[in-house]
């Protein structure tokens, strides 16, 4: 069986010597960003970028297409909103709680789904996510159609108020940067190497003595956890947790971001998230055309642009380097 040609990019094995330059550029962008762009928009984009990066751990580096990642984003955002609003926890604790909830959910769903492959996996994760959606629709604490509104942002460690958008932005940017570096480290760790081995040829990885299923489950839980982190932060940024974040459209959107940015690249999902979020921002008044444009991007990416933005860029860059 030919396994997972889903990611073409980054064909070079992860050499530990990835330069620091991209990270410095990223840090600079994060610092100048709010001077040029409205911080709330930036925070939204960062949350989705983190979500997409978390998703890419599975699709890009493990070769599993989950079509139910909204469950983790949404569930965590409900959990952290509830913790902050009803229990009155400080933001860092609320976010930690949301992330833990997503991790727990990821463990349960992961254990039930990880044995299936390819299309089956996509289908089953989607169905589980829909189960979570109906749970959120009916459970008391989520507020049904209204969601949890006016969630207090609170004060970080009880000291620093996050009320102003600028303070919140700094917090979100730090969380994003830390998570991003962490994902990068994990991908390039021995653990990440095994994940890629599983992606490229699972049977062979097993024959070499790696317990592929456990590695995949670990990647799934990690991905769910980071998606949960994104959701928890998002709930505090917008002071709202709603059904949009649990719906299957959201699961589709994160696939789109990753695909457009470049599956299996480090920066691709973040770039894709920025493009999609800005597109939605500009097309917001056009109503249902957003759906049509999203669909069209999907079709175009699948038909002609499978490397994605970052994937294509690095492909041509490498070609030029080689002369």
């Amino acid at each position: 069986m030919s396994t997972q040609p889903v990611s073409h990019s980054e064909s070079s094995p992860a050499s530990g010597s990835t330069s620091m330059v991209p990270f410095v550029v990223l840090a600079v962008c994060l610092i100048i960003g709010p001077l040029l762009i409205y911080p709330v928009f930036l925070m939204k984009a960062l949350c989705f970028a983190l979500f997409a990066c978390a998703f890419n751990i599975l699709l890009g580096f493990t070769g599993l297409l989950s079509f139910g990642h909204a469950a983790f984003l949404g569930m965590a955002s409900y959990a952290s909103a509830h913790a902050a609003k009803v229990w009155g926890l400080t933001p860092e604790l609320a976010i930690a709680f949301g992330t833990l909830v997503a991790m727990g959910l990821g463990t349960v769903i992961g254990m039930l789904t990880i044995r299936s492959r390819g299309i089956y996996f996509a289908n089953i994760t989607l169905a589980f996510a829909q189960m979570v959606f109906f749970f959120c629709l009916q459970a008391k604490f989520t507020g049904g159609e209204d969601g949890i509104q006016s969630v207090p942002r609170g004060s970080l460690f009880g000291l620093i108020s996050l009320k102003s958008d600028m303070a919140m932005y700094v917090f979100v940017a730090v969380v994003f940067f830390a998570a991003f570096v962490m994902i990068h480290r994990i991908i390039h760790s021995p653990f990440g190497q095994v994940l890629r081995a599983v992606r490229e040829n699972e049977t062979r990885a097993i024959s070499l003595g790696y317990k592929a299923e456990q590695y995949k489950l670990a990647a799934f839980i990690l991905s769910a956890m980071l998606a949960g982190l994104a959701g928890s932060v998002k709930a505090l940024v917008f002071q709202l947790a709603s059904l949009t974040d649990v719906g299957w459209q959201m699961s589709g959107e994160v696939v789109l971001m990753t695909l457009l940015g470049g599956v299996g690249t480090i920066f691709g999902p973040a770039v894709g998230a920025f493009v999609i979020v800005s597109m939605e921002n500009y097309l917001a008044e056009l109503g249902s055309w957003v759906l049509v444009v999203q669909g069209a991007i999907f079709v175009l990416c699948v038909m002609t642009f499978r490397r994605g933005i970052v994937g294509t860029a690095s492909y041509y860059w490498n070609k030029r380097q080689q002369g």
Partner: peptide, 9 residues
């Protein structure tokens, strides 16, 4: 999936 979004939209 993309086609479904287009049609629905």
């Amino acid at each position: 999936f993309g086609l479904a979004l287009i049609f629905e939209g």
